[in-house]
């Protein structure tokens, strides 16, 4: 049984038409309801990942720059500290020298004072 025969084979056209119809409908429904959304989601995920990668690259560069900057600041601080230390050492030496000189002066003065008072006492005792 069939609508037409081809080389002796019966072909039922209705079945073929139904098959063509249902597959076409399936493709269009799936395209509209499923694949459009799915492709959109895949694309936006790809975009998202690309953005994230770019952002990481950017952050990496920034971090490297910041690291360099902080190293520079640290070096500067070390240098400054050394400078300050040297300066203060120098000052301390000067102060010590100064103090020593002053101490000598004071000693000298004290000696002189003592000498003078001795001679004064001597004179006094002579007079008595």
């Amino acid at each position: 049984m069939g609508d037409i025969t081809l080389f002796g084979l019966p072909i039922s056209l209705g079945t073929m038409i139904y098959q063509a119809l249902i597959f076409t409908v399936l493709v269009f429904i799936l395209k509209k309801l499923v694949f459009k959304k799915l492709v959109g989601v895949l694309d936006s995920r790809k975009q998202h990942i690309e953005n994230q990668l770019q952002l990481t690259e950017q952050y990496k560069l920034e971090a490297e720059k910041n690291l360099e900057l902080s190293a520079e600041v640290l070096n500067q601080a070390r240098k400054d500290a050394r400078e300050i230390m040297r300066h203060s050492e120098h000052e301390a030496k000067l102060m010590i020298l100064d103090a020593k000189a002053q101490a000598k002066d004071i000693q000298k003065e004290v000696k002189e004072d003592a000498f003078r008072s001795q001679s004064f006492m001597h004179k006094d005792s002579k007079g008595a």
């Binding site: 069939g2 039922s12 056209l13 209705g14 079945t15 038409i17 139904y18």
Partner: peptide, 10 residues
Amino acid sequence: FNLTFDLSII
């Protein structure tokens, strides 16, 4: 409609 339909395939 003058067309043959195979119910099992449908």
